[in-house]
Design a binder for these strands. Sequence first.
DNA 1: ATGGCTGCTTTGAGCAGA
Length: 258
Amino acid sequence: MKIAAWNVNSLKVRLPHVLDWLAAQNPDVLCLQETKTEDKGFPFAELEAAGYTALHNGQKTYNGVALLVRKGSGDVTEVHRDIPDFDDPQKRIIAGTVNGVRIVCAYMPNGSEVGSEKYEYKLRWFAALTEWLQIELVKYPNLALLGDYNIAPDDRDVHDPAAWAGKILCSEPERAAFKALLDLGLTDSFRLFEQPERIFSWWDYRMMGFRRNLGMRIDHILLSAPLAARCTSSLVDKAPRKLERPSDHAPVVVELAD
DNA sequence: ATGGCTGCTTTGAGCAGA
């Protein structure tokens, strides 16, 4: 089973890249972040024609997440939107069960600047997510949490750790929030394998960030223990970042043995 | 050196992203 996550930074703009990537990679599940559209305007028909069932939790202009599930990979059941008992108008979560795997697609808050109101929201949001997943993991032992975490968990995940020390995406409270998810029994699939140095999943559009590989690894696939045991690969696919008018994020992909 | 790109918005300067 191949599952992936990709922050597309507007699905309207990126649909051709998404369709090409689905055709080339044939994933069972692709989780999208930052669709930036309401259901009205979401390309259900185009994705259906490409062989994927789409489930969307969207809003106008900002945020928005979607689950794309390949027809033939099994039905999507128990579809769920948003963090329960967490009052939040921002559409950041969609979950569903596919082929016995609980897929939680998440677009974590950016946080803007350490100490800002948005930063406080980010930390509260992570606390609510963690509390919810603790319960979910009892119900769904085979669980994958994937998406744009907006956290670089380690200095290895930052192109210039000294420059970013204590800054947004790298601050200690954010890294502690990431670790709190690991403490639930989840594993960063990327670190299950030996990886080359300086692998990132996001590069700033400015200053030729991609060409100079000035990036951060902030998109992650966390797996519960039974899924980590089945994981045979975890990587970042840089190819779509090289296309014309790319998203600033690249897809992250794992494969699970049957 | 606080810019730099890109996408969005009651269409055009301002916000947000990371």
